[in-house]
Every structure is written in C-alpha cells, then in structure tokens.
Write a protein that binds this DNA or RNA. Structure first.
Length: 597
RNA sequence: GGCUCUGUAGCUCAACUGGAUAGAGCAUCGCACUACGGAUGCGAAGGUUUGGGGUUCGAAUCCCUACAGGGUCACCA
C-alpha cells in the first residue's frame, strides 16, 4: 500500500469497474502492486481476478478498465496493458501531493499512540546461572524490536521478563561458591557478577561429574552414583532450606542473585533494551498451584496414585503432561500457568501477550495455551509464542561444554572495537571528543550487530561465523547510517526543514524520484505488516531498499546543487523524508542514527 | 518413529503472502568519478528455487510424495 495513493486508486477501480461492467468487485479482488521497472507506469492493477466478473478475457477487461480509469481520473495520465496486467501512469501532481502531505505529518510511519490495544511482550528471561550469549542477543533484539514496532503501529506495549531465580540449579552455584569460593566477590575480583556466578555453576558441574565418576569406579551404576553425589545432596538440602525460608540460605541467595542482576543490567544497558516490569519466579512459582488444584476439582485434570496431577491431552494429539509433582512441588508448567493468569490480572486492559522464546519450546507453549483453554481462562486465545530459530555456528549449535559459546559482552565489545578502528582510519570525526567517538563506535558497532540479527525473518535459524566477522559494508546498518548521515549533512547545509519546503505540484518527477516516493509512502503499511506478523525483518529490508535507492539516486541527481528551484525543493523534500523514514525504521530495530560518522 | 519448522546463486539472506524475465549483499572480474559526505555508484558472471507429481490463466509460495537438515516428544528450565 502506497500511502495517499493506493487507497484512492482502490476506490477508483471499484467505482469504474462497476460503471463499466455493472458489478462491484470485492475488496480482496483489487490487487495493486508496484509496476516492474521494465514496464511503463507507476502502479499496476492485476486484472486476472476481475476477468471472470467482467465476462471478458483479462487483457480485454484490462484495456476497457484502463480507458475508463484514465477518463474518470484526472490524476491518472495513461495506461498500458501487458497480458492481464494494467499498468497505470500517475500524474506529477498526484505524486507531489502525496509527498507534500507526508512532509506535513508528524512521526512518519507511526500510527497515533494508544490507537490500538494494550499488548505485553516478554523477552530475554535468561537462566541466571549462565552469562548471556549470542542466542540471547537475538532474543533481546527481537523482543525489544517487536515492542517498538507494536508501539509504532499504535499499541500500548508493556515489556516484561520473567527472571528464573529459584530452583535446584541456583542452589548448585551457591553450593559451589560456598565450598570453593573463598569469599570471592565481583568487587574483590573485578569480574562481572554474572560471569562470576556462571563460573561457579560450571565448577559445580565439574565437581559433580568427578564424584559420579568416582562412584562408578567404585562399582555403582551411573544413576546410583549421581544420587550418591555429596555435592548434589548438598544442593538439594539447600533447596529445601531455601523453600523453608532459612535465613542464611536466603541471604546468600540474595547476595549472589544481586551479583548476577548487576552483571545482566550492564549487558542490557549495552544492548539498549529495557523492561517495564520484572517478574521473579520466586514470587510466582506458587501461584500456578491453586489453578492446578482448581482444575483438578473441576475434573479438567486427573491425579495419579502418587498424588501427582496431570492433564490428558491425547484427544488433542498430544501426550499426558505433568502439572504438579507427587510431593506437591511446582514444575515449569505450573508456574507458567500461574504467571500467565497473573499478568492479565496485573494489567486489566491487556489484550494479548507475546512470548519471545526460542523454537525449541514450541511444544511447551502449545501445551500451555491448550491448558489455559481447558481451564476456561477467558484470555486463553490471547497468547502468542513468538518463536525464533537458533543462531548456529559453522560447527553447529553452540555448546558450552565445547567452549563454542559466543559471549554477548565479548561480541558487543568486538563490534565497538571494529567500528572504532574503521572510523579512526577514515578520520572524518577526528574533531570529536573521546566520549563522542565512543558513542559513535557504539552506535555503529552495535547497530551492525542488531541489523545482522534482525534482518533475517525470526522463524529461520541463522548462521553466524565468528571467523568472518560481521560486515560494515553492503546490506548493513553502517551502510544505512552512512547514507542517513549524508542526507542530514545535505539538509543541514541547506537549512531545509520539513516545514519550510514547498514546491509547485506540477513539478516533474522522474522514475528515480517516483521510486523514492513509493518507498517512503509505502512505509506506514510495512510497519503495520511487521506489527501484525511480529517481524522486524520487514522493516529492515524496506529501509535497506529505500536507502539503496537513495544512494543510487544521489549519484546522478544534484540535490542542493540543482538549479531549478522547484526541482531542488522537491528533491530536498524527498531527502528529508528518506532520512526520517529510515531513521524511524531503524529506531524500531533499536538502531541509532548518528549525526556524523 | 510421531508431531513440527526449514531447504532459493559458491556463502549469508530477499521475493509485496498465488502475479510479469526469482532479487540483494559478500566473494570474483571489469568500469566510472577530486564526489551537495567515497563507509560510493554502474556493469559482468553466477539459478532446473532439493528431486518427482498435482491444483490453475499463473507456483519458490498451496496439496501429495521422496530425500536432506534443525527442533521437540523430561517429575529440566
């Protein structure tokens, strides 16, 4: 959809078709698309779907419709027919009017805030024992970007994450730190808190495996050896003490979690993401229990002899699923049921929620949503799993055991360093202060990484090769930033602003100018599509196409140097709109546009 | 094995949701310009859209089938 033109064209086709053939087509039969470059014209009507109703072969109907449209609309200057495609040429006035209208509208591409419903987006939600890695970067950038896109589309968005701060795995790092830590703290070692805790989680695993190996060597079978491991027994004991509220354990738990949160916050800050509300499992894990027990009382679930509670999903083509252990303790599903219901209670106006979680949990969410439905939960249909593919390395999946994990902090740093060295080499910002240089390296380096991860459709798993580092040229954020900086420079030098630009609507626009206009005017519709499909890659690709068209246009079209006054103003108008469109689009991906680079 | 996602140029990805001769970037080769900002532009080469069938005016897209790869089917999270 080209803003300001296609809606009018759509209406004109309906009216003209009815006047010509005596019947009115359905809206969905009107297909308008951009005319391919090899043909004459601006917009193309696909006539095949209308031929039957017109009672004529497609090219005959197209010809008749073209005649009638050109006569009826003074803004259509001509037409030609190729097979069933009706190519329509629009007048300069039509294009100029649409561009000028766009210039007067604020915040191009954004629908009015609050014009749509309230939506919750959950993302990040990491395991607190493991420092953030490349996969988390994709998750965070995706969740944050989808939030921004939904906002731009007019939704009121609440960004949340659930922090997985309880359970046996947390106790593992606590036990290891107690036994091996010798009082180390982030302050004493200078290590980031999440890295420090992660190190002890690994240390636990190593010690545990050694104990199991020893047990096996002494003749136990592997399962017995695991159960006999003193380390594991200590962790279990600690979990019990934690659940009982033991002061000493809770104090240690708070301290170590505090270290992790401090470390994560630093990484979130670097990533440029944020949250409106945090949920902690330690607060919510008991909530699901009462819903499960209610479900049992209502006969939706059933109980086994050991007291465990299950749901039977075999009628839905799935299995039986455990909801509550025999000893009454919660499992993952239990607390997800509780949390889902809690969120709708916390936000009474909430229309739906979106879970940004990797595709390995598709089964889990399918089951969760089904259970909510069986429980008769009113908003059971209002949940969506935004599933995304893994980031793979050339050797396959990331494996912490094999040391192939790409650490988020390390990668972000490397991106900043690369951006900095390119920038220093080019020497265009030698007059910048050190702080400004650091900021620029962050905008460019992090921008390149975000764009790299977001330009791929979420559903696809994607390849990341650490050896061939992320590009700064070609289809990349730095290329886009460079061209926006160029636009800004031209506008700065001429003093042109969107409010001062004005030109005669009869000013001729050539193919390149019309192509730019189409890219600009198509943007609001792309934002809506991206919001509807939770897909930032649509925004990325649209912005890239537009800025590439501008870069090509710039090469052989003088802008500030153009001598014809009206043409100059029109080109400045296009330049301002390209800059605004692309800047707004990149902001929806969490990517900043510098003033200079 | 069941369910599910994916398969497009040497590589990494697009393709307006069924539309015209499947497009970009990287890599390779060539050309242009002391550039209103060169982190540039233009061109060449590169494709039986994994194979086979079907649906129709029209298929990378929908259906069937075979093959290949990922995910999942835990009293883990």
């Amino acid at each position: 959809m080209i803003h300001g033109i296609d809606a009018r064209l759509h209406q004109a086709v309906l009216d003209t078709f009815e006047a010509t053939f005596g019947k009115r087509p359905a809206d969905r039969q009107i297909q308008i698309q951009t005319t391919r470059a090899e043909f004459e014209g601006d917009r193309t009507l696909v006539v095949f779907p209308l031929a039957g109703m017109a009672g004529a072969p497609p090219h005959v109907a197209a010809d008749a419709l073209g005649q009638a449209l050109t006569e009826a609309c003074d803004w259509i200057s001509g037409f030609n027919v190729v097979k069933g495609f009706l190519n329509l040429s629009l007048t300069d006035a039509c294009w100029n009017a649409a561009i000028q209208e766009a210039l007067t509208l604020p915040n191009w591409g954004h629908a009015p805030t609050g014009s749509k419903s309230q939506v919750m987006v959950e993302y990040s939600s990491p395991n607190t024992n493991k420092p953030l890695h490349l996969g988390h970067l994709r998750n965070n950038f995706l969740g944050y970007s989808v939030s921004r896109i939904l906002e731009a589309a007019g939704h009121d968005v609440k960004k949340v994450q659930i922090i997985n701060d309880r359970g046996i795995h947390i106790c593992k790092s606590m036990v290891a730190w107690q036994k091996l830590g010798q009082g180390e703290t982030p302050a004493s070692t200078g290590e980031k808190g999440d890295k420090l805790v992660g190190r002890y989680y690994v240390a636990f695993d190593k010690a545990f495996k050694a104990e199991v190996a020893e047990g096996v060597a002494n003749g136990l079978d592997p399962k017995e050896a695991e159960a006999a491991s003193p380390m594991l027994q200590e962790a279990r004991t600690m979990l019990q003490r934690w659940e009982e509220g033991d002061e000493e354990v809770v104090a240690l738990w708070k301290t170590m979690n505090g270290w992790v949160y401090e470390g994560f916050d630093a990484t979130y800050n670097a990533m440029g993401v944020s949250f409106d509300k945090l949920y902690y499992e330690s607060d919510t894990y008991l909530l699901g229990k009462k819903h499960v027990e209610q479900g049992l009382a209502d006969g939706v679930f059933f109980q086994k002899e050991d007291g465990s509670i299950w749901v039977d999903l075999t009628d839905d083509g799935l299995d039986e699923k455990l909801l509550l252990r025999g000893d009454g303790t919660a499992v993952y599903m239990t607390q997800d049921i509780g949390t889902a219901i809690l969120r709708f209670a916390d936000f009474p106006d909430l229309d739906r929620q979106v879970y940004t979680v990797g595709n390995e949990q598709e089964y889990h969410f399918k089951v969760l949503f089904l259970i909510l439905k069986k429980l008769g939960f009113a908003q059971a249909e209002a949940n969506h799993h935004l599933s995304y593919g893994m980031v793979e390395l050339p050797e396959g999946k990331m494996k912490s055991r094999e040391g192939t994990v790409v650490d988020a902090d390390d990668l972000l740093l490397e991106m900043r360093n690369t951006a900095r060295s390119i920038s220093d080499e080019l020497g265009k910002v030698d007059d910048f202060s050190e702080d400004d240089k650091v900021q620029l390296a962050t905008q460019v380096g992090h921008g390149a990484l975000k764009y790299f991860l977001l330009k791929v459709a979420p559903a696809k798993s994607m390849m990341f090769d650490p050896k061939s580092s992320i590009d700064f040229f070609g289809n990349t954020a730095p290329f886009i930033q460079f061209n926006v900086v160029r636009c800004k420079s031209i506008l700065r030098n001429t003093g042109a602003t969107t409010s001062t630009l004005t030109w005669d609507q009869a000013t001729p626009l050539d193919a390149a100018e019309r192509h730019l206009a189409a890219g600009i005017l198509g943007f609001p519709d792309v934002v809506q599509e991206a919001a509807a499909s939770y897909d930032p890659s649509l925004i990325a690709n649209h912005c890239y196409d537009l800025i590439k068209a501008f870069s090509s246009f710039y090469q052989d079209h003088p802008i500030a140097k153009e001598e014809d006054a009206a043409t100059r103003e029109a080109r400045l108008g296009l330049t301002a709109l390209v800059s605004e469109t692309v800047s707004n689009g990149m902001a929806m991906l969490g990517i900043d546009m510098p003033e200079r680079m």
